[in-house]
Structures are given as structure tokens and as C-alpha cells.
Design a protein around this nucleic acid. Structure first.
Length: 588
RNA sequence: CGGGGUGUAGCUUAGCCUGGUAGAGCGCCUGGUUUGGGACCAGGAGGUCGCAGGUUCGAAUCCUGUCGCCCCGACCA
């Protein structure tokens, strides 16, 4: 039992100006966290208690799924990362640590970074310690603070520079084993989110800088989420926008027959899709080719899409370039022979085709029968362009951004879109890290193989805020029983009456014996203040003990999400509280 | 990093355009009256107006720079 007057719950009537969304405001108003700097937060006692609930439940589910908990350092030798496969991509989000704090390393000071995640630490550890198939599979996890120099921290704990994450790493001897581990983690994640009382859906996701063969994100549907989930309720298809695809192009689509010979025509000043759509050209956007130029690992490459489609840049990750970015006009002109706006992928018109690493075409361009593209000559385009006959495509792929309403790849029904908060991510990594770090084992035939890895993360601190985003009303937070900082709040309206405090203590003992954690509001405040605070901090079960009720021999019982108050005779109060706690536990 | 905004007391803010004594509400302290949904009265403490330059007789206010923070985009748990 904790007495409010002796605890620390600094609630606020007004929300600070820098909080924009409901969960962020409530986080601060309910006294859960305070900001130190951008993306840096102190967990106040109430916030810490919720964090502890989340980590404990997460730990239990990970252990149930066979996970083994350990704890790795927050400071990593930069060397580990330099030897790893993603130093170039990861370094921009990593904080470097140096003792002087002036951005320079002192003499004989190792170069250290603050860990954004731990593949580069766990893989060398496993390499050193595990060499036999007899010791596999293994799944190690930790719950620890991560550091990422987010380009833009925002929304409180939602995207922070320092945050708490559960990260797990599985090592299997075979690919089938790795898939089993992956599914065990997927099930553990589902159990975790179920237990903490939030709806989270698993969606197919892009593997991003992580690499690896496949992955799912766990999303909590919320308007303020910064990811788009593309889904179809009936078929169960759900994917992150970056990964989402549609059945726009039939697999058996025949190549269109060429119509007429290619023909160059003058288009002075027309350098956009829209300009060619307009008079006097009148070429529909879906009959134009959009030719984009990127730089991948130092070499230019082309991406060709329909004029009406947008590039989904994340999908370029499938091309295997370590780092890529849009090319500048200065880089483009000498290779293509024209400035952006007049570019095309027609064989023979590219000035220096040898300088290109490839021409990658979205498969949807096959829907174009007789299209128009740039002539690689400023102020000119080409008509009667036919994909099979004219374009020098290295490889077709899926590079376009899916739009709602397009056919679901599973059922053909229209796809829908909604916003979500990513709270977890699981990856089947494959052997990318084990090969780089030499994490191999010997099988029963004395053969060595790289271990097949998976990695898994849950943003615990982000989940804390997502719980609030999903569970609040106009008055404040509505905690699910399993993660509430306390389960029972006893509001003592007249704490100066010894009798009232006496009743409160008796009920607190009853609730505690039933297995609840109890907060007693013994502050000398007006009832209105206490009720407002009670709603704000969102404790699931509220008991009210007041002088007025006591005269009638009554106390009151109210669920945070219920409107009505139940008056209970004093003599039955302890039993009723016990019953209410048991019932809530059973439903949690 | 690009675009937009903002910085005045612990919190929310007015004042800035048009330069001239820094104001309010909440919170806090003292006393009194109140007492079942954020009470009232009286008194009080608390601000080098983010920082540094500049213009001016005079700068919270105008100019320049800088830092912090917020929002939109790329990135992520």
C-alpha cells in the first residue's frame, strides 16, 4: 500500500505546450514521465511501475517461448560495428561516446558507441561460446535501454533517443529451425500483447537496413501512428506500406504487341508527367514511363515506373545496394545525355550505358501498351514505346507504392489503409551476421555451417505510450488491469477522520490479500480534485471512503471504465473488494 | 538535413505588429471561510523576457547570429 501524500505523483491540470497527441499529454499530465531533453525522459514512480509491469510480462512470455535472458553492455567498441555488415548504414543513428565530450577521442581512448541494438555484440559472443550443433538452437534476449540518434524524436516516448527495448536473437542450425524459432517468437509476441490488453496486429514488413529474408511488424492501430498498414479484413492480408503489394498486374499478362515504330517528338519545356498529360500532348499518366535515377554504392541505376505511380523507395532495398539515394541533376546529365524530365530507358538512347548499374522496372509498366518516355535529349520525348521491344530492362520487380482500392494479392478484394504504431518487429535474418562474424557450428557429420539467425524487438517504452493511446477517454488514462501502476485506488475524502483512514486501511489489506496493489489517496484536498486526479491516472478500480458515506455505513466502488458507482455496506465492503479484484484478474 | 513555427515565473500564456514601469490564470506560501467532481476572500514569494551581438537616449518588442523546443518529410522499436 502506498499513501499518495507520501508518494510522488505530480499531476497537471494543463498539458505542456510541447505535447501534441493525447497519449503524450496524458503521460505528462498523469505524472508518469518528465522530459529532460528532446527524446529523453525520466520515468517518474507511476511511469516506472508501468514499465516494470510491461517488462515482467514480456520476460515471462519470452521465457515461456524458450528465451534465455542475459544483459549486454550499452557501450560498444566501434570495432564491432566496423566489422559488421551495416556500419555504413547504422553509423548515422549511433551516438559516439567519448570521455571528454568534445567529439574527439582522447589518447589511448577506445572508440565507443552507444548501442542502438545488439546483433554486433551477441553474434561474436555466440561465435566464441557455441561451436556444436548439440548446443543449438539458442534464443537470447535482454530488456535494456537503446540509444538511437533519431533524426527527429517526437511524440514523447513514441520516438525517443533513449528507449527501452526487449531484443532477442535466435541461433539455429538449419533454416527450418530458424523458421520454427521465428514462429515461436511471433506466438510469444501475440501472447505478450494479449496479456497487456492491447490489440496489436502482425503485418508483413520490409526488412530495411536489418537485412534478412522476411519479417513482421506488430502494429497497434491508432490514428497518430506513423506507419500505413495496407490490409484486407476478409483475407487477412496486412502489410506495412513499404512492403505492401497488390495484384494489379496479372501474373500471366502477355507482352503487348508493338503498335507502330518509335517516334521522337519535340516537347519544349515539358519536363513533368503532368505537362505531358496536358494539351497539346494529352498523354495519360498511366501511359507514360517515369524514369528515376538513383545512386547505389557509388553507381547510377534507373528505376522505371508508370507515370501515374509513385516509387516506394524502401522496395529498392531488394536490389541489394548497401546505401542508395536519388542522383543529382549533375550526376545524371553526363550518363543519360539529358536533364531530369527528358529521361528514358530506351536502349541505344542512353549516352553512357556502361555507367549504369542496372535498369530496374516496376512490373506495372507492362500494363503500358504504347507509351511515351523521355528521349534522353532535352526537350524531346518518344512515343510508341513498347516495353518488350524498346526498354533495356535489367530486372522487373515491385517498386511502386500500393494505393488503397487496388486488388488484394490474396483475395483480389479492394485493399484498405489505416495508420498504426509499430511496437514490435521480428526478422528472420538468415546467415548475414553469422557469416560476417564467423558464427559457425559443427554438425554431426563434422561439417561447419553458419548459424541461421533471427532477431526480434519490442519497443517497451513505446508500447507504454501506445497502451495509453489506445486506452484513454476525455478524463484521462484507462489502464488495462495487467499494466496499471496500481490496480486499486482508495480515495479517502476525509483523511483527517481517523475512522475513514481506518476503513481505508482495512479495505487496502483486503485488496492486497486478493492480489492487488493499492494506492490510498490520503491527501487533504477537496473531493473534486481527488476525483479528477483519479480519473487522470486511470487506476482500474476506485473505492471511495468519505465521512458522508460512513454515516450511512457505505463505501463506494467504481470501475474506471464504468460510469455507475456501486454503494456497498461497510460490513460487506472487504468481501466485495476481494470479489471485484478476483473478477478483474480473471478477465485480465 | 529540407520546409514551417516557437522561446516571457514550476505550468498555460498576454504584451511584440506600432520600442518607454513585465501582466494574468493555474500551481506554491500565510491567514480565514468552505468541504462529494479541479472552491472563495485577503495577503505574499517567484521573471537578467533562451543566449550573444547590433540599432536606439531607451529593446521582451526592431535587426543579425546562435542554441533549445514543437510540427510536416526521409528513418526507426
Amino acid at each position: 500500500m502506498k499513501l499518495w501524500s507520501q508518494y510522488f505523483i505530480p499531476t497537471l491540470k494543463e498539458s505542456p505546450a510541447d505535447a501534441e497527441i493525447a497519449s503524450h499529454k496524458l503521460l505528462i499530465r498523469a505524472g508518469l514521465v518528465r522530459k529532460l531533453g528532446g527524446g529523453l525522459y525520466t520515468y517518474l514512480p507511476l511511469g516506472l511501475r508501468v514499465m516494470q509491469k510491461l517488462t515482467q510480462i514480456c520476460r515471462e512470455e519470452m521465457e515461456r517461448a524458450g528465451g534465455i535472458e542475459l544483459q549486454m553492455p550499452h557501450l560498444h567498441p566501434a570495432e564491432n560495428w566496423q566489422q559488421g555488415p551495416r556500419w555504413a548504414a547504422a553509423r548515422e543513428i549511433m551516438f559516439r561516446a567519448d570521455s571528454a565530450g568534445d567529439g574527439k577521442r582522447g589518447p589511448r581512448e577506445p572508440e565507443l558507441v552507444l548501442g542502438p541494438t545488439h546483433e554486433e555484440v551477441i553474434t561474436p559472443l555466440v561465435k566464441a561460446e557455441i561451436t556444436s550443433y548439440r548446443d543449438l538452437p539458442k534464443n537470447f534476449f535482454q530488456i535494456a535501454t537503446k540509444f538511437r540518434n533519431e533524426i527527429r524524436p517526437r511524440f514523447g516516448l513514441m520516438r525517443a533517443r533513449e528507449f527501452v527495448m526487449m531484443d532477442a536473437y535466435s541461433f539455429d542450425p538449419t533454416d527450418e529451425g530458424a523458421i520454427r524459432s521465428y514462429h515461436a517468437m511471433k506466438a510469444a509476441y501475440e501472447a505478450f500483447f494479449r496479456r497487456i490488453g492491447v490489440r496489436a496486429i502482425a503485418v508483413e514488413a520490409d526488412t530495411g537496413v536489418m537485412g534478412g529474408s522476411f519479417s513482421h511488424e506488430f502494429m497497434i492501430p491508432a490514428e497518430i501512428g506513423d506507419d500505413d498498414v495496407i490490409y484486407n479484413e476478409a483475407s487477412g492480408y496486412a502489410a506495412n506500406r513499404e512492403k505492401a503489394t497488390s495484384a494489379l498486374v496479372p501474373a500471366d499478362l502477355p507482352d503487348a504487341a508493338p503498335v507502330g515504330a518509335r517516334e521522337e517528338f519535340a516537347t519544349p519545356g515539358a519536363v513533368t508527367i503532368a505537362a505531358l498529360e496536358a494539351a497539346p500532348y494529352g498523354v495519360a499518366a498511366d501511359q507514360q514511363f517515369k524514369t528515376l535515377v538513383y545512386v547505389g554504392d557509388g553507381k547510377l541505376f534507373l528505376v522505371v515506373l508508370r507515370g501515374c505511380d509513385e516509387l516506394e523507395e524502401a522496395k529498392l532495398g531488394a536490389l541489394g545496394f548497401g546505401v542508395f539515394r536519388p542522383a543529382t541533376a549533375e550526376e545524371i546529365a553526363p550518363v543519360m545525355g539529358a536533364k531530369p524530365g527528358s529521361l528514358g530507358a530506351i536502349q541505344g538512347t542512353i549516352q553512357d550505358p556502361a555507367a549504369l548499374a542496372g535498369i530496374f522496372a516496376d512490373q506495372a509498366i507492362r500494363l503500358i501498351g504504347n507509351g511515351v518516355t523521355g528521349a534522353n535529349r532535352d526537350g524531346f520525348h518518344v512515343r510508341h514505346v513498347n516495353v518488350a521491344r524498346d526498354l533495356a530492362v535489367t530486372k522487373f520487380g515491385d517498386f511502386r507504392r500500393v494505393r488503397p482500392g487496388e486488388p488484394d494479392p490474396r483475395s483480389g478484394q479492394p485493399l484498405q489503409v489505416r495508420r498504426g504504431i509499430e511496437v514490435g518487429h521480428i526478422f528472420k535474418l538468415g546467415t548475414k551476421y553469422s557469416e560476417t562474424f564467423g558464427a559457425v557450428y559443427t554438425d554431426d557429420q563434422k561439417q561447419n555451417h553458419p548459424m541461421v539467425m533471427g532477431c526480434y524487438g519490442i519497443g517497451i517504452s513505446r508500447t507504454l505510450q501506445a497502451v495509453i493511446e489506445q486506452g484513454h477517454d476525455a478524463d484521462g488514462i484507462v489502464w488495462p488491469w495487467a499494466v496499471a501502476p496500481f490496480q486499486v485506488l482508495i480515495c479517502v475524502l476525509d483523511p483527517q477522520l481517523p475512522e475513514a483512514m481506518e476503513v481505508a486501511r482495512t479495505l487496502a489489506v483486503a485488496a492486497e490479500q486478493a492480489g492487488a496493489e493499492v494506492l490510498v489517496d490520503d491527501r487533504v484536498e477537496r473531493p473534486g480534485v481527488k476525483f479528477k486526479d483519479a480519473d487522470l491516472i486511470g487506476i482500474p478500480l476506485r473505492l471511495t471512503v468519505g465521512g458522508r458515506g460512513l454515516k450511512e455505513g457505505l463505501v463506494e466502488l467504481k470501475g474506471r471504465s464504468q460510469r455507475e458507482v456501486v454503494k456497498v455496506p461497510l460490513a460487506e465492503a472487504a468481501a466485495r473488494v476481494t470479489a471485484a479484484v478476483h473478477e478483474a484478474q480473471a478477465n485480465a
